[in-house]
Design a protein around this nucleic acid. Structure first.
Lengths: 170, 170
DNA sequence: TGTTTTTATCTCAACGTTGAGATTATCAAG
DNA sequence: CTTGATAATCTCAACGTTGAGATAAAAACA
């Protein structure tokens, strides 16, 4: 049983034996980095087959899971997506052109700086269909790992995320 | 104990109770996706502070760990980095301008299509310094997780990578 | 009230990657 | 020794993100 990261660590051990004792974090972080790439590619392809950008899916699902009225200020989307403001503006522009979301400015006495991004009827339907397919795909991806090991793995990953300060959405 | 992914799952459970049973993969894949982002940002910043692009570090370390003569064909770098050919060409261009690597064409009877990318003396030094600092940083990042749990975590991650077909470098 | 600071979003040029196509070289078959 | 297919690299336009700055509104303070 050996993956790409084992091979990488083996190469380092041979090339720099003096670092052998310091290589253990690579077992985790190297794999996380690599898994990040693999998942990103997988999800991107999955989304593209349905005519969506990965960043767009991000916005759609964030709005959907926020519950009625399926609208959030741009700033909230920005934080949830962990991207910069320019990226969110561009995404909204594209998605508005596709009819997936619409910009809604506060009427009356509200804060007129904030722009609420609201899921359209069409966007809502697209998101529902997408989520069903996406969850099925995710279950398939983890089929070899099994439910029990997935739970244990999730616990360690949470611990790691927490230690990185990723403690909540807000 | 609750992280951003717990919050996300909680939102979905409330908004779409019918999907509750199907949300378990998100515990793993959602966190992996998120960790990918976090690590990418962390490593990118770390590299930037030392005047390097993350993709450039990728090339440097791949060459270094390949051992003497610290030279690989462009295609090998391409696969190791999991990027397209255009990206590698650009990286090599930049790094050649910085004096980190040099393009070496096969002399004599070799395959004249292949271009070997070789670490320069300067590139070699930069890589050595970088690796030492990088490994120290990685150890720090995992300090809260501990060695033992890191090993268990690594085992599950390897299983996952293998099930995704990421079995070796070549 | 007027001034300053902070907050929310948008603008835009620079940057790196993608992905298709071009180029050049090797290999296999006739 | 051609012909055709495969392989390695480079070219280049399109794309999404970044990050600094602009704009405008709200809040804090004098």
């Amino acid at each position: 049983m050996s993956d790409a990261v084992d091979a990488i660590i083996g190469q380092w051990t041979k090339e720099r034996p003096d670092l052998t004792e310091d290589l253990w974090p690579v077992q985790v972080l190297g794999r996380l980095q690599r898994l990040g790439r693999v998942l990103d590619k997988e999800f991107r392809t999955f989304a593209a087959r349905r005519g969506l950008e990965l960043g767009e899916v991000d916005v759609l699902t964030t709005l959907q899971r926020s519950g009625p009225p399926y609208a959030l200020p741009a700033g909230a989307l920005l934080k949830a997506a962990m991207v910069t403001s320019g990226a969110i503006t561009n995404r909204i522009d594209r998605m508005e052109a596709k009819g997936l979301v619409e910009r809604v400015r506060e009427e009356g006495g509200g804060d007129r700086r904030t722009v609420r991004i609201r899921l359209t009827e069409h966007g809502h339907e697209v998101t529902c269909e997408y989520m069903a397919a996406h969850l099925a795909n995710e279950a398939r991806m983890l089929s070899e790992l099994g439910r029990e090991e997935s739970d244990r793995l999730a616990a360690s990953l949470r611990k790691l995320l927490e230690s990185f300060g990723d403690t909540s959405i807000g």
